[in-house]
Computed example of a mutant assay.
Amino acid sequence: MKTTESTRGRADSTASRDSATKSDAGVMSGRVLELDALRGLACLAILFHHFKPHLLPFGWAAVDLFFILSGYLITAIILKNGRQKHFLFHFYMRRGLRIWPIYYLTVLVVAAASPWLPRTYDYAGLPYILTYTQEVGLHWSRSTPAFSEYLMHTWSLAVEEQFYLIWPVLVCLVGRRGVVSLALALATAAVCARSSEMYWRVLLTRADGLALGALLAALFTARKAIREHSAVPKVFAAIGLGAVAYLAFLIASGGMSKPEAPPWPGPSLLAVNVLGAAIVGLVIYYQGRPALSVLRRPRLVKIGQLSYGLYIYHYVLMLLSDDLARAFGLGGRPFWREALTAAVIYAVAALSWRYVEMPLLRLKDRFDYRPTARAEASKPHFTA
């Protein structure tokens, strides 16, 4: 009896801590801890893919998981606050405070140091990367000025920034009832664009992930009763398993002969996004429940919180590590050097969050969507 009571007490205590943590985070940020953790896992997958592409050849697909999460979070914000006065102005100011500071800090540091770095650079490409248009020309051309190899990974940030610029205006124009139709049209356009062999790292060809995230927001935000319907997780699980079966068939039949370097036919990448959307949908449905307690662990949530900085800094520091090793005549990538580089990446991202991002994020209170709620938002933990 004592053992049962003790076990129950520990379980209640753990549940209370989980509930309190989630509640506190919700007050401070309006965010879902499980989605932050999912973002952290996606970031780790991308980093591992860049370090060891042969061990995780499909790791690039985590970028599309980022897109799905962004589509969901941004559309949820629009559906919740789109009718507020000066919404678009507040939205763009808050987005700018979140994403511009360390992006431009990284770009300007690389630009200033480029003459002394061993890799080639072309200042003709700098205006494009400064305006998040480094890949726009590839919608209609196969070539565009590239500024620096250290910043090649920023194409995905350009895709998201372009989405942030266009999507809120479109949603505000069509209204809440038009979101589903708009998202379906965008996903269809992306599949058609890839099928016509358009370059696969531009907004149009990667928009289906963003669109599926928007569909999730329309499903869960506009129809709150869905959250309690018992059939929802079964539907998401069936959709996810269907996507897995299709992808497995493509791999077995050679339809994905180069997993590390798409594109494939349009529907193939759509299957990757459908799988990601099913996972995100299940996480949203089960948020706060014991089944997802692992996604509320502080360390994993912390990685999700730092994921933006980790993504921006990791590629630059990884290449610099290779450059230094080469300069000292060290070949290959031994485990100790990769581990040291990973530790440096995490330390830089943590310092960036503490001393650059957090102080600037406090300014977001000046652009609160609901002015009466400003007093409640005392700490800037919104990292979308």
Rank of each mutant, 00 (worst) to 15 (best):
R354H: 11
A339P: 06
P168D: 13
G281K: 06
L138H: 02
R31E: 13
M93G: 00
G304W: 07
L65E: 01
R119Q: 15
G213D: 01
A61Y: 05
G209N: 11
A111Q: 00
A45S: 15
E357A: 01
E34Y: 02
F51C: 08
V232A: 09
S195L: 03
F367L: 09
T75A: 06
L340Y: 06
G71L: 04
I78M: 10
L38C: 12
Y103K: 09
A225G: 12
R366V: 00
R206A: 06
V110D: 14
I284Y: 03
M93F: 11
S143C: 05
P115T: 10
P267M: 15
G30A: 05
P263S: 11
L250S: 10
P233E: 08
H54N: 12
L130P: 14
L292Y: 10
R297T: 09
G59Y: 01
V316P: 11
P290M: 00
R10F: 13
I303Y: 10
L170R: 05
D365K: 14
K258G: 07
H54M: 07
G255F: 05
W155M: 03
A113H: 03
G40A: 09
L44R: 05
A158D: 15
L157E: 04
P265G: 02
R374V: 01
Y199R: 14
R206V: 07
R119F: 12
S253I: 01
P380K: 00
Y103W: 10
V191N: 02
A25G: 14
V136S: 12
L250Q: 12
A342M: 00
A61P: 04
L138A: 01
L319Y: 15
L55W: 10
L275P: 08
A377V: 10
W60P: 03
R366K: 10
L117K: 03
A20I: 07
R10N: 04
A225S: 08
A11C: 04
L182D: 05
T3C: 07
F367C: 06
K379R: 09
H153W: 09
G175S: 04
W336D: 04
V109L: 10
R223E: 11
L241W: 03
F66D: 06
F91M: 07
S6H: 07
S148F: 04
G240V: 09
E260Y: 15
L157N: 06
P265D: 06
G255N: 08
R337E: 11
L295I: 12
Y123V: 14
P371W: 09
L270S: 03
D24Q: 15
I68P: 00
K224H: 03
A183H: 07
G178I: 07
G213Q: 02
A193M: 01
L210R: 01
H49C: 14
